[in-house]
Simulated assay, not measured.
Amino acid sequence: MKRATITLPDDLEQALEQFMAEQAVPVQLTAVVQSAVREYLGERDDLPSPAVLRIRPAPRGSGQNDVSVSHDQYLSST
């Protein structure tokens, strides 16, 4: 992780403060800046896309057939 100190002009500081104040859930300046940089780099195609989650079904007959109903029992057993 890289730490950086940045200087913002007054108009940008005010806009950021207003944006953060308008959020229903409190948000940290760091999170806003990271999100903005990620979006900027994504638009320029300079950010690698995140890995795609590939969930594949198990072959038929590969295990129990009641796991969706009895999941707590299966997760608690060792």
Rank of each mutant, 00 (worst) to 15 (best):
D66M: 00
D46F: 14
A58R: 04
Y40C: 08
R56M: 08
V37E: 07
D72A: 15
M1P: 12
L16R: 01
S68N: 08
S76Y: 05
L29V: 11
M1Q: 07
P59E: 13
E43I: 04
K2G: 02
E17G: 11
L53E: 09
S68Y: 03
V67D: 09
P57D: 07
H71R: 14
S70F: 08
P26M: 15
E43Q: 05
S77I: 05
Q64D: 10
N65F: 03
I6E: 02
L8G: 01
L41Y: 09
G63W: 09
G61E: 14
D10V: 07
G61V: 08
L29T: 02
L12W: 06
I6P: 02
A4F: 11
A58N: 02
N65H: 01
Q14A: 12
E22D: 12
L12I: 12
R3D: 03
Y74W: 10
L53A: 14
R60T: 12
T7K: 13
Q34F: 00
L8N: 06
R60S: 10
Y40Q: 14
A21R: 10
D45Q: 10
Q73L: 12
G61L: 09
A24D: 05
A24F: 10
E13R: 04
Q23T: 11
D11N: 04
V33D: 01
D66G: 01
Q64H: 10
M1R: 15
G61N: 11
D11Y: 05
E22T: 13
S70G: 07
I6C: 01
S49W: 03
V37Y: 03
A51L: 10
P59C: 09
L8E: 01
R44I: 14
T5G: 03
G42F: 05
M20Q: 05
I55Y: 11
V32P: 00
A21G: 07
Q28V: 06
L75G: 07
Y74N: 07
L53D: 11
D10S: 09
T7C: 11
Q34Y: 00
V33K: 02
A36K: 04
Y40T: 11
A24R: 15
M1L: 14
T30Q: 14
Q34A: 12
T7W: 13
R56I: 05
G42W: 10
Y74P: 01
R3M: 05
S68I: 12
V33E: 04
Y40F: 15
Q73G: 08
S70W: 03
A24P: 09
E43A: 10
V32W: 00
S35H: 12
T7P: 03
L47C: 04
T7Q: 10
R44Y: 02
H71G: 05
R38I: 06
Q23Y: 10
D10Y: 06
L75M: 13
G61T: 07
L41C: 11
